[in-house]
Amino acid sequence: MALFGSPGKLSGLLLRVGQCSFAAASIGVMVSAPGFFNSTAFWKPSEDNVTCSSKNKKWGDIAKMAPNRQSIIKSDEEPIVPSLAYFYIISYLIASMGLQVLWSFGLACLDLHALRSKRNLQNPILVSLFVVGDWVTAILSLAAACSSAGVTVLYSRDLGYCRSPHIPCSRFQASIFLAFISWFLLAISSHVTFWLLAAV
């Protein structure tokens, strides 16, 4: 059964290359953001950085006191640490995209080998492995992209953290957009392999 994106076909190879490329681009854009590794608002903070102006208070107390949360961050001050939530979500996004890179790159190599040797990869055992791997990877990637997008919208629109020059919000938003594209291509492969499993 020849479907678009089937394993061992040229369309399947192109889908795998696209998945791997966009996932790698998502990681690259995220990591290349200015101050990514030492940004206290988007990476794991230390206890010394949890301050606001001259008052050394936790974010929870500050958020309750501030009538306008966008006025908390000023351009001449260090950004406030909102919480550890974004650190864990961004870590999850990078981990899921890394897993997708490894999975898609491995299957792209397998598709390339099948095309060069003219072998058929559509047997029940291989297709079952493709289905399990594709669906698990797709679910993890979608969960990571959606959670990262949700918290980014919260921090940029509701809390106004993107007004601070210390936080490269555009880079993080671009990284999440690339993650969604990578997931969309993986979703196509997931559905194709599912229908192939039902047909073999």
Rank of each mutant, 00 (worst) to 15 (best):
G28Y: 10
G28V: 05
G28W: 05
G28P: 07
G28M: 08
M30H: 10
V31H: 02
S32F: 05
S32M: 08
S32T: 14
A33M: 05
A33H: 04
P34R: 10
G35V: 06
G35K: 03
G35T: 07
F37G: 03
F37P: 00
N38A: 09
S39Q: 10
T40I: 10
F42K: 00
W43D: 09
W43R: 13
K44G: 13
K44P: 00
K44V: 13
P45G: 06
S46V: 09
E47G: 06
E47S: 10
D48I: 06
N49F: 05
V50E: 12
T51E: 07
T51V: 12
S54T: 14
S54K: 12
S54L: 08
K55A: 08
N56R: 08
K57C: 13
K58F: 13
K58Y: 13
W59V: 12
G60T: 11
G60Q: 09
D61K: 12
I62D: 01
I62S: 00
A63M: 08
A63P: 00
A63N: 06
K64S: 13
M65H: 01
M65P: 00
M65R: 07
M65W: 04
M65Y: 03
M65A: 15
A66Y: 02
A66I: 00
A66V: 01
P67Q: 04
P67R: 02
P67A: 07
N68I: 04
R69V: 13
Q70P: 00
I72N: 00
I72S: 00
I73A: 07
K74T: 14
K74L: 09
S75M: 06
S75N: 13
D76E: 11
D76R: 03
E77G: 01
P79G: 09
V81M: 06
L84I: 10
A85T: 10
A85E: 08
Y86C: 07
Y88L: 13
I89A: 06
I90T: 12
I90E: 02
I90R: 06
I90S: 13
I90C: 06
I90H: 05
S91F: 10
Y92C: 14
L93Q: 14
I94D: 04
A95P: 02
A95N: 04
A95L: 12
A95H: 03
A95T: 12
A95R: 02
S96W: 00
M97D: 13
L99E: 05
L99H: 03
Q100G: 14
Q100R: 08
V101T: 11
